[in-house]
Design a protein around this nucleic acid. Structure first.
Lengths: 117, 117
DNA sequence: GCGTCAGTCAACCATTTGGGTGAATAACAT
DNA sequence: ATGTTATTCACCCAAATGGTTGACTGACGC
């Protein structure tokens, strides 16, 4: 276990990903590679400003990185934070599965009443 | 491909999961099994009403199911919707990986200029 | 210098969100 | 019948969200 834990803000990641426009931006970046803010904005029926704000939200969640090359801001997708979500899901599933195991055991072994804690 | 697709609202799921209180509720339900609204609420420094509202958000996203047994509402976690998120992540990762493959190919084969579309 | 292009910042607006309170409903306990 | 328990509903409120427009900063083309 190499110092994992909370490099990312799970709430921020999930909230950022919960908006359809922002998911569309992520998809664009995944298929087309780093893009400028303007290029991204052109695909949406929305002001450049709004798109800029969406990008900032993604950036804040770490889902996107900005490489400012002089006047152009190259926006690049960052997959790493997604693993934080994966891990949280995995944790949830495992404690859930654990409880089910305990229940099954209890059924086989009626001494135990099946309460977990 | 057995008629998968959009049984769940990805935005709703992600938004529901983006709140720490609601994630805590999910964790409780995973470890302790179905609980009544009151039991859940007791663990939080928050009015019963607020917790009730959080539960409704989770229910709306399909992350929780309500089995109303007379006056008691048994709240039960529902893991299925999480797979919708998994799938979206997987899709994103795969189109991302695909682009990287294309890039590598382009490097090996300098005829191609590496643009994807 | 002058205009244009790329992008952010600031202010504004409507809607949603997360919280709270108090009343209403419905069933159980006495 | 009365009270208690379990829960939602209907409001209220402050803060956050998603969108807009307009002004500003910097760098490029001429």
């Amino acid at each position: 276990m190499v110092e994992r834990e909370s490099r990312f803000d799970l709430s921020a990641i999930l909230k950022a990903a919960s908006d359809p426009t922002r998911r569309a931006i992520l998809t664009m970046l995944a298929q087309q590679g780093p893009l400028r803010v303007t290029d991204i904005a052109r695909r949406f029926e929305m002001s450049l400003n709004s798109v800029s704000k969406h990008i900032k939200v993604l950036e804040n969640a770490g889902l996107v990185r900005r490489r400012t090359e002089w006047r152009e801001h190259l926006i690049e997708i960052q997959m790493d934070p997604l693993s934080a979500v994966d891990e949280w899901f995995a944790g949830l599933r495992s404690i859930w599965a654990l409880r089910l195991d305990a229940l099954e055991t209890a059924l086989e072994d009626p001494e135990d009443d099946g309460t977990v804690s």
